[in-house]
Nucleic acid binder design. Sequence first.
DNA 1: CATGGCTAGATCGTATGACAATCTAGTCAG
DNA 2: CTGACTAGATTGTCATACGATCTAGCCATG
Lengths: 111, 111
Amino acid sequence: MSDSSWPTEWLRGTLTLAVLRILADGETYGYAISHRLEAAGFGSIKGGTLYPLLARLENAGLVEVTWRAGEGGPGRKCFTLSPAGCEEYSRQRAQWLAFAEHTTDFLKDPS
Amino acid sequence: MSDSSWPTEWLRGTLTLAVLRILADGETYGYAISHRLEAAGFGSIKGGTLYPLLARLENAGLVEVTWRAGEGGPGRKCFTLSPAGCEEYSRQRAQWLAFAEHTTDFLKDPS
DNA sequence: CATGGCTAGATCGTATGACAATCTAGTCAG
DNA sequence: CTGACTAGATTGTCATACGATCTAGCCATG
C-alpha cells in the first residue's frame, strides 16, 4: 500500500478516465490536475503526458477551456467538462466499473 | 454484452495478466489462448499482438515452451507457467484486484 | 488432383501515446 | 540578482497494439 505506484501500463488506460473524474468535480487546470492525480495514487503524471491528453480532450470537444490570470503565478488554462464531456464521463465511468468487475470475476473464478 | 468489447486502451494493460490467468489453468498454445481471450470477453486479440506478448513472457522466463505435433493440424508451440511465472501471476493478480478496487473507490467517492 | 477452408505460428509497417528532458514565462523570497 | 516554485508546452525516443500479410500442415469437396 505504501509506495502504491501501479504499473504504468494499467495507468495508461485509466488516465483519461481519471482526468475526467477530476474534471467532474469542477473547473481546474493542468498543474492542479497532476497534483490531484498524484494524491489519488496515480503516480506523478508528467507534463509530456498530461498536456497532450488535455489537448486531446479539448480537441474532442469534451472540455471547455478558459484562460485565467494566475494569482501569484503565471496564467492558468482552466478546463471544465462540456456537456458532451459529462456524458462521455458517465459512459466511461459505468464502463470502467463493469470492466473492473468483469476482470475481477475473471481472475477469481477457477477456470 | 457480446459485441461491446472494452476500449483497447484498457485491454492493453490487462492483456498480459489475462494471458497469465489462462496459462495458470495449464498448458496451452497461442491459438487457443486467443480463442479463450475472446470467449472471456477480451475481444479478438490478433496474432500481431499475442505472439509478441508470448515472446516477451518467454523472454522474461515466465513461461516454458514446448513444441508438440499438432493433432490434425500444424505443430503447436505450447506454453506453461514457469515457477517464476506463477509467482509473477499471483503478484499481478493481487495487484490488479487492489487496483480495480482503488479505481472503483476513486470513481464512486464524491470528490 | 486441385482448390479452398481451417488451424497454427510469425513478421512487418504504421500509428498511438507515455515518458524524460527541456524550454518559456510569471511571481516571490533571500 | 538568483533561485525556487508555479504553470504550460514541446521535442525525441521507446514500447506496443493492430491490420495485413505470409508460411505451412491438414482436411473435405469437387
